[in-house]
Design a protein around this nucleic acid. Structure first.
Lengths: 209, 209
DNA sequence: TAGATTGTTAATCGATTAACAATC
DNA sequence: TAGATTGTTAATCGATTAACAATC
C-alpha cells in the first residue's frame, strides 16, 4: 500500500527503527555511519536503507556515509517528531491507568493530556494526575486540549462503538489496546497493540518443530 | 520470508486475526461463513483468506462456505492454541507488574508461571501472586516450571544482555516490551511490543497532510 | 588521486489478486 | 438441478535486492 505522497507504508514504518538505532549510536559518541554498518546493526540490507531514505531526499555523502546527527534531525522532521503531540486516553480501567502512568511516552514527545471513561463511578476520579472526563464530552474537551491522537483501552465488546465515536469526533490517529481489530474509514489511521496476538503466531513455530 | 514448512510468515501472522473474528462470530451465534463475508468483516480480499487457509488444508465446502466451529478448531490446532503455554516474565518493574497482572493472557491459554529480576531489592518479593526469582537462576527455574515463552520487560540499556542470556538458556520465543530491537539467532523468534514505535509512524501521516 | 559509499535503475523475488474449473 | 462458493492456478502487483555510475 502506498500513501498519498507516494511513499510505501512499509517504508514509513521502518523509519522509527532507523531513528532509534541512530539515537543510540549518537549517544554512544559515533558521528558517521554507512548504510552497510547500520544494516548490520538492524539486520537489514544496506540497499534497503539507502532506498528507503531516497524517498525523502539525499542525506548521505558518497565515500563517507551519513552524518548521524544530521540524519537524526531529518528523520525527526520527516516523521513529525520535532514537535509535541497531545494524546487522550479513553478507558481508565487497569490498562488505561498503566498507559497514563507509562513513563515512555513523554520523553519521545507524546504527552497524555486527558483521560475519558463512560463509567459514572470513574468519571471525576484522578488518575496519574489527570481528572477523568465523561467520554460523552470527548469532542468538546479534546478540541479544547488540542488532542491529536487517541489511545483506546476499553473492553473488546465496546471497542468498535468507542472508535466509531472517536471517528465521528474527527480523530485521525488511534492506538488501539483493545483486543479487537476495529474498522475505520481509510483516512483514519489505527494501530493495534495486542500482546496476545503476537504470542498466538509465535506458538505456531513452537508447535511445528 | 518463508518458514521451515513453506508457509510464508505473513500468512501465519494473519491466522490469529481470522481466529479472533471467527470466535466472535461463533459467540454471536453464527454457524457458517463464506470467505466473502469474512473478508468484508476483516477488510481483506476473499481470495487472500482462501489462499491463506489453503496452505494448511481444505476446510470449506463449495457452494456453502466454512463451518465456523470446525474452522476455529482447526486454526487453534494449527497455531498450537489447543494447549496451555507457560510464560516467564523477566523484569519486575512497573511494566513487568502490569504484565503479570494482565488478565488477558490466561483466557487465551498463556499462563504466567514465574517472574525474574536482577535487583536484590526485588528478588524475593511477591508480585501478582508470584515470588520473584533471581534472573541468574533463570535456566534452572524455567526448566523446572516448563517455561516455553519469555516476556522481557527490562530497561532498554540491559535488554540485549538479558535477551542474550535467555537465548543461552535455550528460549526460542520472546515477547519484547523493552524499547529496543534486539538481535537474536535465526531460530529464536522475537516480537516487539512498543507503543511508541507505533505512534512514531502515525505522526508521519498527521504531519504530512 | 584512489578508495569508499551513495543514490538510483533494473532485475529479482515474493505476495496478492483475479479467474475459473471443480463440486457441494 | 441451479446456484453458490471453494481451492488452485496464472497474472498482476509491489517490495526487495543487486549492480553500478556518480561523486565525495
Amino acid at each position: 500500500m502506498t500513501t498519498h505522497s507516494g511513499v510505501p507504508e512499509v517504508v514509513v514504518d521502518r523509519l522509527p527503527q532507523y531513528l532509534r538505532a541512530l539515537a543510540q549510536l549518537e549517544s554512544s559518541g559515533f558521528d558517521v555511519i554507512s548504510s552497510q554498518q547500520l544494516g548490520e546493526l538492524l539486520q537489514v540490507t544496506p540497499a534497503q536503507i539507502r532506498k528507503d531514505l531516497s524517498y525523502f531526499g539525499r542525506f548521505g555523502k558518497q565515500g563517507r556515509g551519513y552524518s548521524i546527527s544530521h540524519l537524526l534531525e531529518r528523520l525527526r522532521n520527516i516523521l513529525g517528531l520535532d514537535q509535541t503531540w497531545n494524546v487522550a486516553v479513553v478507558g481508565v480501567g487497569r490498562l488505561g491507568r498503566s498507559i497514563i502512568s507509562y513513563p515512555g511516552f513523554e520523553p519521545e514527545g507524546f504527552r497524555v493530556v486527558c483521560a475519558f471513561d463512560s463509567d459514572p463511578a470513574v468519571v471525576g476520579q484522578v488518575a496519574g494526575g489527570l481528572t477523568v472526563y465523561n467520554f460523552a464530552d470527548y469532542a468538546e474537551i479534546a478540541e479544547r486540549e488540542h488532542v491529536q491522537i487517541a489511545i483506546v483501552a476499553v473492553p473488546a465488546n465496546v471497542a468498535q462503538a468507542v472508535i466509531d465515536n472517536l471517528v465521528a469526533a474527527g480523530v485521525k490517529s488511534i492506538l488501539n489496546y483493545a483486543p479487537k481489530s476495529a474498522l475505520t474509514p481509510p483516512d483514519v489511521r489505527i494501530r493495534n497493540v495486542d500482546p496476545v496476538v503476537s504470542l498466538q503466531s509465535m506458538t505456531y513455530y513452537l508447535s511445528a518443530v
